[in-house]
Design a protein around this nucleic acid. Sequence first.
RNA 1: GCCGCCAUCGUCCAGGGGACUAGGACGCCGCCCUCUCACGGCGGAAACGGGGGUUCGAAUCCCCCUGGCGGUACCA
Length: 421
Amino acid sequence: MRVRFAPSPTGVLHIGGARTALYNWLLARGEGGKFVLRVEDTDRERSTPENVEQILEALRWLELDWDEGPISQVERASRHREQIDRLLADGRAYEDEGAVRLRVPDEGETVVHDAIRGEIAFPHHSIDDFVIARSDGSALYNLAVSVDDLDMDITHVIRGADHLSNTPRQAMIMEALGAQPPVFAHLPLLHGLDGKKLSKRHGAASVQALRESGYLPEAVRNYIALLGWGLDASTTFLSTDELVEGFSLGRVSKSPAVFDEQKLRWMNGRYLRELAPLDLATRLEAITGRTGLEPAASVAQEKMQTLADFWPLAGFLVEPQPTDEKAWAKVMTEGTEERLRIAGEELEALEDPWTNEGVEQALRGVVERLEVKPKEVFQPLRVALTGSTVSPGIFESVVALGREETLVRLRAALGRLELAT
RNA sequence: GCCGCCAUCGUCCAGGGGACUAGGACGCCGCCCUCUCACGGCGGAAACGGGGGUUCGAAUCCCCCUGGCGGUACCA
């Protein structure tokens, strides 16, 4: 088995393309076949090395490795010309104002065998003699892909359903070339939440955007696999191995799917929480360019959905954050000064080691001593330390911050309160 | 216009003649947990587009309609 993924080198790998790549890859890996890459563009202008590299980078990020390629169609121009001449010589094609057209019979039909949709018949009367080469001699898409697929011994062509009506043309070219067409499979298209074709308007619609938004490749892979395919009635989480093992074209859906970023976020959060803290920290360090993030990472982990959530949630552990004035005004009320002062004293007096249990005991002690509600101590403390009313658990936060830094920030807050009175 | 594809909760995925009182997940609502926000737990609302057939029986098979989508390029 040889499957090929043939992206347009626009420099952007959109979600639909990523899913096509994933399905091809899963199929190849599952059957012990080859996953080959080919740049699908006969136009020299767009096929820049930079654009191609961006696609490859996105595939690498998704951990979809390839066995061969990428082969550029532009570089295959002379081979395409050779086959065009052959069709001309065989009388299967003819020249029309400089362009070359394939002869399509008026009668009959071409039947395409699709692994997902079954047999599809295209009546010949609805297909004109179509152009296979421009008047400058260069090959057009339908001819180029057909020649390339044949030369590369491609056995399975899996692509988006938008290519369905190209398929009879390609099958006819292959037939005219005296070859058997490969197995075709057309995946349902992907739409945005508004039912329209997926595009930049729909948030993170490309792999690159997803990556920048802090999604994990394993979560993206899992989520994308489920857009148009499902193992059974209840399985949602599948490792790459399980995906390779369980994937089959026969279970691919025929109807279009809608890309729902909310569900991806949820799934990403689940994957994030299963990461070892060190692993999470390493990934965060890679995108923030900072080091020593492990303590902060493990504190923030339970509340993050994407890597991008880290900074708003736990940035205060790395460096002091500006105080949210609305939060300050809300929690710094009558009596907070005393509560914070006593909390500070308790923490200062707390014996080593500086642990979660010790900190919790000390702070709950303050609550009991003053006979107030827990939040009346914890919320002002939270704002004093983090600058916000939203943060990871207060005990973990204090522990991660360390005694010294906790006291520094507490004193700063107390200073501000004194100034105000 | 012509050709083709598709049609189950708002969304994704199951169910492919009787097991369907249509299942799971996201989201939504409620309750619980709780130091905030989350996580988690429990519960709830929520779908077979319409009409004809076939059949003892249809979400499932057939036809028509409607709707959505794709193509109809010397684009890919």
